[in-house]
């Protein structure tokens, strides 16, 4: 972790001038601070191109939803934001992703620091086979925190924020694998927010859950918006409409339309978007 490699955490710098080709319409507050800026990103897995010239801005403390038919590149784009694609062999990309104005693909960037600032919740809940407490404390422990009182405090606060405290407080030292699916997913959210990231990426966090658990997570997302910038991938139109402020529609690796959620669902500019959100294809 050399100092050069650490992404420093600046207050949002004045956004660079938007490329003219940006397909999104400006939001209501045009001066909204931008957390993540994707700038003409192309990505291919080997010879297969998965993202074509994608440019968009993720706005701070808003929920941004990615929608689109299966295989259109939503997860791929999401996994660019914390460089999880680094783990895949044969990925090539060009273009830039700026986090607080800094290119996260720059060679000097420390991936570990990046991932501490950009947390992720996966489609399939993946608690570690450890106790509930250790799951939440994991991020801090690997960052070198050993103080018991600090860990206790963070675990409690994170579980509370993930709306899991009441259910888990009596069994903190039991295995996390004994939780229900929905509880496990909330645990994963608690684990992600324990390290105080700026951005939380969620890849279909409710796809394996029943409606009640889904409702709980959605409620949680709405409250988390106060503190975090959230990007969520979902196949559920109602969910996107309920929880998100901004929605991006992708099709075959291209960003088709990006606008306020209300606009996307009520008066989409693009006929493909309209067809998709009204359920006529996809």
């Amino acid at each position: 972790m050399s100092s050069a490699a650490v992404l420093e955490k600046p207050p949002v710098t004045a956004p660079a001038p938007l490329p003219p080709s940006l397909p999104g319409r400006p939001t209501a507050g045009a001066a909204a601070p931008i957390t993540l800026r994707v700038d003409r990103l192309n990505l291919s897995y080997g010879t297969k191109q998965a993202l074509f010239d994608v440019s968009l801005d993720i706005i701070e403390r808003k929920v941004t939803a990615f929608i689109g038919p299966s295989g259109c590149g939503k997860s791929t784009l999401l996994r660019c934001f914390n460089r999880m694609n680094d783990l895949v062999d044969g990925v090539r990309l060009d273009g830039r992703v700026l986090l607080g104005g800094q290119d996260i693909f720059a060679p000097a960037v420390d991936v570990i620091e990046l991932r501490k600032r950009v947390g992720m919740v996966f489609q399939k809940s993946n608690p570690f086979p450890k106790s509930i407490y250790e799951n939440v404390a994991y991020g801090l422990r690997i960052a070198g925190v050993t103080s018991k009182s600090q860990l206790d405090e963070v675990v409690e606060r994170s579980l509370q924020r993930a709306a899991l405290w009441d259910e888990a407080k009596d069994r903190l030292h039991d295995s996390a694998l004994g939780l229900s699916g929905g509880q496990q997913q909330r645990l994963c959210i608690a684990r992600a927010i324990a390290v105080e990231p700026e951005v939380i990426l969620m890849d279909e966090p409710c796809s394996a859950l029943d409606p009640i658990a889904t409702a709980k997570i959605e409620e949680l997302i709405v409250t988390l918006r106060e503190q975090f910038t959230i990007v969520i991938v979902t196949h559920n139109m109602q969910q996107a409409a309920r929880v998100s402020d901004r929605t991006a529609f992708f099709y075959l690796g291209k960003l088709i339309e990006y606008a306020d959620t209300g606009d996307i669902f009520t008066r989409p500019a693009n006929p493909q978007t309209e067809a998709y959100v009204s359920g006529r294809f996809g």
Binding site: M84, I112, E113, R115, G119, M120, F122, I142, A143
Partner: peptide
């Protein structure tokens, strides 16, 4: 992946 995504080396 869960571990790596939390910033573990």
């Amino acid at each position: 992946e869960g571990s790596l995504a939390l910033g573990a080396s």
